[in-house]
Design a protein around this nucleic acid. Structure first.
Lengths: 339, 339
DNA sequence: ACTTGGCACTCGCGGCAACAGAGTGCCAGA
DNA sequence: TCTGGCACTCTGTTGCCGCGAGTGCCAAGT
């Protein structure tokens, strides 16, 4: 009973603070929520909560605000699930269904997520390493330069210009195309190295030098350093929550433009079926130490194709944001998994 | 002689204000620049300049700052060209040379431009309507669904999933591929409609329904509504110039995320060989009325492939920014034109 | 006809004191 | 264990003052 009410008080503090962005005092708390006790009692509970590190006061004699630890407890134990409205679900579906290709899916998703959560949204393109080869195309640009185009089952297209050792005619190109497709079509990219390992040895001698060159390019581009990509939207929402200008906003914007940082961040939390919340200092990135990240993985089956999520102030509607992230991930996963 | 000095004063005001971001007064002006006259004389000139609308004072008894009209005169008549250093040119070249494909070129360019100018950079992908078809590929996903991939000479890849009326085998697909490539390879996209107009009639009867479907998709995707794309970088630089938070920064960020707005903007100023400057209210976009846009087109030959530029505060180093924009446009044009 | 030095005037801004309001901690009583 | 009361501590606001920068104007000089 006693512990119970303290948690109620914490929940009330978080909810009030998220709405008002102002330190919340005992009097307002006792009035606005049905705690059925007097402000003085609430003060005692707040005192205890502060002792335990769940809340803090920015200045002596101001109200209390939640600490990272307080938000953490709130997210873990105090916040219920907040299902999206039917209208929201329909909006998601209809918005994403109009997408014509992978780029379009990703860009629509990220804008959608930014709009739903009113935060900065991040969507990772499907990882190459989780994809399979759908088709490889070789196009002659000049006799000595080929364009290699690789299409994955998630709809991603990678292309590279290849300088080849000696000129080729279309017949050779056709054979090369056949050999590569035969070996790689339907294979997962991670399995590509062994799939092509013996190709040059088995192939006709006159094809070998070309094959070696092409295989080297494929390996380099798709396996050794598979370029991961990120889409971003909703940075304007950062101006909504009154973060201070130079100290917080600038490094945050810089970090968000640094794809490496975002990829690392997303990579750590792209579990399927679990929406991960990182609050404040739980993020190992300095620029994000005053923000929270809500993210999850998307995809079908066992492993995640990619991750998506939002970045926003710690003072955030966690239940709503988590619901939106989960819902968008589900739709994106279905869309890209089925395609 | 008289007019001459007034212009000198205006130039000095612009240059000082760009550096200091503080209204500049007569005394500081007379001292810091070699005007060879007393502050009182400068005051008279400033009075006249204000009368004519080139400068204004934010409050009675503060220094003067340039108006849009003042910046305009400065850009048109008072600023010399400011060539980039050899080191800068080399940096541009080496940074862009590492690009592996079109996406990479664009993303590197936009980051480079943001870094050079310390402003928000915008780069438009090469317009589809200015490109030619390099190759069309058709891949079977299922017997009833094909993937159509179109590659342009600028390296852009467009793909669409096509539901076809009746299942096809690989032989048919090969023929379709041959017919489409025969008709379109090397053609400019704007010429595509007439190039394919008679295809169904000339083709073997059994191919016609497929051809009709495929051509419809090509037309829809590439000619009727060629999707234009934009890359953006350096938004963190907006926090550098002390724009006020809610009134200016938010609508600006929102406008920058709205591709339509940017495309319209870039579309108006993508002349080759001319760097266009739009100052403050010269931009017809509300959110940009307190910023300046410096932009130009890139490409080889007669018409521009696309546009690029930067958005920044009116208080901007115009000569330096214009030089950087021109230089990057030149390199990008060469890169994409030659590829 | 321009230019120059002098002078009075106008504001914006930083510092300082006073004040009101919100919130807390603590204590005694129910 | 809860509650009401009370003293205390801050913060943010307001009003006031003086400083300094900058202007505009005028009369004198070249």
């Amino acid at each position: 009973m006693l512990e119970e009410r303290r948690l109620d008080v914490l929940r009330a503090i978080v909810e009030d603070f998220v709405l008002s962005n102002e330190p919340v005092g005992s009097k307002a708390l006792a009035e606005r929520h049905q705690l059925r006790v007097s402000p003085a009692t609430v003060r005692n509970d707040m005192s205890a909560l502060e002792e335990e590190g769940y809340i803090t006061q920015p200045h002596t004699s101001a109200g209390r605000i939640p600490t990272d630890k307080g938000y953490r407890l709130f997210v873990d134990r105090l916040s219920g699930v907040k299902p999206l409205s039917r209208a929201e679900r329909r909006a998601i579906q209809s918005f994403l269904e109009g997408a014509v290709d992978l780029d379009d899916v990703v860009r629509r998703s990220v804008r959608l997520l930014a709009q739903l959560t009113r935060q900065v949204a991040v969507v990772q393109y499907p990882s190459l390493s989780c994809s399979s080869v759908r088709h490889i195309e070789i196009v002659t640009i000049t006799p000595a330069r080929l364009l290699l185009v690789l299409i994955t089952d998630t709809g991603r297209v990678e292309q590279r210009v290849v300088e080849i050792p000696a000129p080729v005619d279309d017949l050779i190109v056709g054979e090369l195309r056949g050999v590569l497709n035969g070996a790689l079509n339907g294979r997962r990219l991670v399995d590509a190295p062994e799939a092509v390992a013996d190709l040059p040895d088995e192939a006709r001698p006159d094809l070998r030098p070309y094959l070696n060159t092409l295989i080297a390019v494929v390996m380099e581009a798709l396996v050794e350093k598979p370029e991961e990509r990120i889409a971003l939207a909703g940075t304007a929402n950062l101006t909504r929550s009154a973060l201070d200008f130079a100290d917080t906003l600038r490094p945050l914007l810089e970090a968000l433009e640094e794809q490496v940082v975002l990829l690392k961040l997303i990579g750590e939390v792209r579990d399927l079926d679990t929406v991960t919340v990182r609050i404040g200092r739980e993020n190992n990135v300095d620029a994000l130490r005053s923000t929270s990240v809500v993210a999850t993985g998307y995809g079908r089956g066992a492993s995640a194709l990619g991750g998506l999520g939002v970045v926003g102030p710690r003072r955030m509607d966690y239940p709503g944001t988590m619901a939106a992230v989960r819902a968008v991930a589900k739709y994106v996963g279905d869309l890209l998994g089925a395609d």
